[in-house]
Simulated scan of single mutants.
Amino acid sequence: MIETPRLILRQWLAKDYPHFAEMSTNPQVMAYFPKLLNPSESSAFIDRIKALIEQQGWGFWAVELKENHQFIGFVGLHSQPAQFSFSPCVEVGWRLNEPYWGKGYATEAANAVLAFAFDQLQLDKVVSFTTVENEKSQAVMRKLKMRKITEFQRPVLKPDHPLSWHVLYEISKKEFQSQN
């Protein structure tokens, strides 16, 4: 578990499933993903990331507000061993429900996750990526002091898919520690 002033990042609970399923059908939340998830796909996603957290002790953690324990989405780390030309790598990523956008929660949680990545996991660098059009996530990356490295085509999407082009950002342990 990771705590920030306003948030708790933790393992997924049964009560999170319906909230995440609702998020996964919201066209605004899923605008930069290839498709909306139906309830069974949403549950399968949680089951996979929950198992990874149990296995390795880290992953895409569920995020809740400290003040009322409301589930608001996920933030965490995910290993990308072979999918990309820049693999192997570990990415920091997030997906929050729409009512919680613009409040600094993604940046707050991702900053704590980066501290975990560099202090506990002793990683040398962490990457993040999103579609070229996703300005809000890129703004979070810049707030985290990550540097834009390149643009690339996502290998799992067809080259003509509207979401195929992505931007890659990264931050090194040294860069992170010098800023914090």
Rank of each mutant, 00 (worst) to 15 (best):
S79I: 07
E67W: 01
M30D: 14
L144M: 12
Q70E: 14
F152L: 13
F74T: 06
F86A: 04
L9K: 09
E135H: 12
T131F: 07
N38D: 15
Y17T: 12
H78Q: 15
H166E: 06
W165T: 11
I72M: 00
Y17G: 03
T130S: 15
E170W: 04
C89M: 13
K136H: 12
A115H: 07
Y169W: 14
K148V: 02
K35Y: 00
L163H: 04
S42Y: 02
E91N: 08
Q179I: 10
D124F: 09
V75A: 01
Q11R: 14
H161V: 09
Q83T: 07
Y100G: 04
Y17R: 13
R6E: 08
F71M: 03
V92D: 02
V132M: 09
Q153V: 02
A82Y: 10
H69W: 00
L7I: 03
V140P: 04
S85A: 15
V63L: 07
S164M: 04
Q179K: 11
A51M: 04
T130Y: 05
L157G: 07
P162R: 11
Q28G: 00
V126G: 06
V63G: 01
P5H: 08
M146Q: 14
K173G: 04
L9S: 07
V113H: 04
F60S: 06
G93P: 05
W61T: 00
Q179M: 08
P162A: 06
L144G: 12
L123R: 13
Q11H: 08
S87W: 10
L36H: 07
E54I: 09
I49D: 00
E135C: 03
R10K: 07
L144R: 09
L168S: 02
E108Q: 13
A106I: 05
L121K: 06
N68Y: 03
E133F: 10
G93N: 01
I46S: 03
E98I: 14
E54W: 06
P162T: 13
A21P: 08
E67M: 08
M141R: 06
E41R: 07
Q28M: 10
F129T: 04
